[in-house]
């Protein structure tokens, strides 16, 4: 054992396990200071503002028809978009890990595009593509679907923004699947479809659910890529984050804080669900 060079204060020494490595006090202190000042204090300000309203005040804002409709649109469309993103995300992850084809690396890199492309840029690009006279908008119009300025547009933007979460959560787990299990299943006489649905898929379900929850949470909070294509008609295509911006510009801080609290509450429940899924998955399958 190496001796600790300088005795620290008794509090720090009992708090952390002894180590020869220096710099715990300063790095830990700096971390907590930054975290406190930049993240925790401002978020506490939101909690203070919201608790000033009380549950009845928040409920009053939530049941305002325009707010209720915006929340319904944000959460409803996001759930639908996360569902589609999860399905196609699974397919993309499967194709990228299991099959070899020319341009695979390029396709793999393209999956991260929504992470890298600023939301406002994605927003105006989607709006111009799906506008009634746009490349895809005119094609959809011929099918009788109007995408821009309707919930369909919001749905498209949310699928765009949620897809990387769905792909990247499932992809490492598909790569880890033991091929021998599939071969065993096949040699025991199972058809390929039976092997996939009974052997391969079940252990992947927690990851798919996690990807769904992440895409869902991202879609609910998303602003930049949606507002341009949505057209923001109250009661039709107005999302909750936009309503926060409107309330702030009207100096209705209480109303904005109430909407934000409701959104954070539901997002928190989603995160909690993810953690429960992962804990359950660890117990059931031995990995996340």
């Amino acid at each position: 054992m190496v001796e600790t060079p300088r005795p620290k204060s008794p509090l720090l020494r009992s708090f952390r396990r002894p180590s020869v490595i220096p710099g715990f006090g300063i790095s830990f202190g700096y971390t907590l200071t930054c975290l406190g000042l930049i993240v925790l204090l401002p978020l506490a300000g939101l909690v203070v503002k919201a608790s000033g309203l009380g549950l009845s005040g928040i409920w009053e804002v939530a049941t305002d028809p325009r707010v209720a409709s915006a929340l319904r649109i944000s959460f409803g469309v996001s759930a639908l978009a996360a569902l589609v993103a999860s399905a196609f995300g699974f397919l993309v992850a499967w194709v990228l890990t299991r099959y070899r084809f020319p341009g695979r690396k390029l396709v793999d890199a393209a999956v991260d595009l929504p992470f890298a492309l600023p939301t406002a840029v994605a927003g105006i690009a989607l709006a111009s593509l799906y506008a009634p006279d746009g490349l895809l908008g005119s094609a959809l119009a011929r099918l009788g679907i109007q995408a821009a300025y309707t919930p369909v547009g919001i749905f498209i933007a949310m699928v765009f923004i949620g897809l990387p979460f769905a792909v990247r959560t499932v992809q490492p787990l598909i790569a880890e699947i033991d091929k021998e299990i599939e071969e065993a299943s096949a040699t025991l006489g199972a058809t390929r479809l039976a092997t996939l649905t009974k052997v391969v898929l079940p252990p992947l379900i927690p990851a798919v659910l996690t990807g769904f929850a992440l895409a869902f949470a991202r879609g609910v909070g998303e602003y930049g890529s949606i507002i341009f294509i949505a057209g923001n008609l109250p009661y039709v295509s107005e999302i909750a984050p936009l309503l926060i911006v409107i309330k702030l510009s009207e100096f209705d801080y209480g109303g904005a804080a109430a909407i934000a609290t409701i959104m954070l509450g539901i997002s928190f429940l989603t995160l909690l669900a993810i953690n429960l899924i992962q804990a359950w998955s660890r117990r059931r399958f031995g990995y996340v």
Binding site: P42, L46, E222, P241, I244, L248, A257, A260, M263, L264
Partner: peptide
């Protein structure tokens, strides 16, 4: 996990 709009709002 915080919406961008909420990040500005705080």
């Amino acid at each position: 996990s915080v919406s961008p709009v909420v990040s500005g709002m705080i």
